[in-house]
């Protein structure tokens, strides 16, 4: 019923609806145990997270209101040449980018600009991992891993189409990769230089240093994030927004 009311209001207020459309859900406080044993567990305060990734339709509303983030207007330092490349035109997603599918091929800067426009932010890596660890019922790590092994097919499926976690967040596994605020913070040194944390992930013996060697999917996420720069765009990389609760949750 609540959903219907939101939709109705959305209809009445036009473009504002796109900004309000994505429902956020409370994620209880938790602890993120980083992949490598030599890192301390990171406490994560309760926060709110979008129940689904930002869709092409939502991103369209953003670029319509902020023309400087349209394809063709954006300087290379903020997004590489792949930015929204699958969209038919700068203001028309088209067949390869269904309106309810997650927007991808957006840079970290673009994802953050969208979140800021909504008065929100990207989740931190620790927050994202805490939310993603609440695995959907009946989903095993092996199934998550098999998704990583499968090439993406385009156009991407809609959001709200895979699995939801025990607290009701959809598609954290099985649809797209997602940007985080500090996406590369666990891979230290500079990108050009050698990187002990990251290179350890590519070494066969690295699992010996992992907090949980069975979570191989986590290895893949770390390696992927460590390979990214903020201006990169990837066909299977999108984002969702988060926010801090206005009042402390009891």
């Amino acid at each position: 019923m609540k959903i219907k009311i939101v939709l109705l209001l959305g209809f009445m207020f036009g473009s504002a609806s796109a900004r309000e459309a994505t429902q956020q859900i409370d994620i209880p406080a938790g602890t993120f145990v980083p992949l490598m044993k030599n890192m301390d567990p990171i406490p994560v305060a309760a926060f709110r997270l979008d129940i689904h990734a930002v869709t092409n339709a939502e991103y369209l509303a953003f670029v319509n209101e902020n023309p400087k983030w349209q394809r063709g207007n954006i300087p290379r330092i903020l997004a590489d040449e792949g930015y929204l490349r699958h969209w038919e035109s700068p203001t028309h997603p088209g067949e390869q980018a269904p309106l309810n599918a997650p927007v991808t091929s957006v840079s970290w800067y673009a994802a953050r600009a969208y979140a800021e426009w909504k008065g929100q932010r990207l989740p931190t890596l620790a927050e994202w991992e805490v939310a993603a660890a609440m695995l959907p019922e009946k989903i095993t790590r092996q199934q998550i891993l098999s998704w990583y092994a499968k090439p993406l097919t385009h156009p991407l499926p809609d959001t709200l189409s895979t699995q939801k976690t025990t607290v009701g967040v959809w598609d954290l596994h099985g649809l797209i990769w997602e940007w985080c605020e500090d996406y590369d913070s666990l891979a230290l040194l500079s990108r050009a230089g050698s990187d002990e944390t990251l290179s350890a992930l590519f070494c066969g013996g690295a699992a010996a240093g992992a907090a949980d060697p069975s979570d191989y999917a986590a290895f893949l996420r770390y390696a992927f994030r460590g390979s990214l720069s903020a201006s990169h765009t990837v066909a299977g990389l999108g984002f969702r927004c988060a926010s801090s609760p206005k009042e402390p949750t009891s």
């Binding site: 939709l7 339709a57 509303a61 023309p67 400087k68 309810n100």
Partner: peptide, 23 residues
């Protein structure tokens, strides 16, 4: 939900077809 969203977002697109002047 996704089906219901589509017309709304299209409607919102139509409402804002006059884009603000480029900054």
């Amino acid at each position: 939900l996704p089906l219901l969203f589509t017309p709304i977002l299209q409607a919102s697109d139509a409402c804002c077809s006059v884009a603000p002047p480029p900054e």
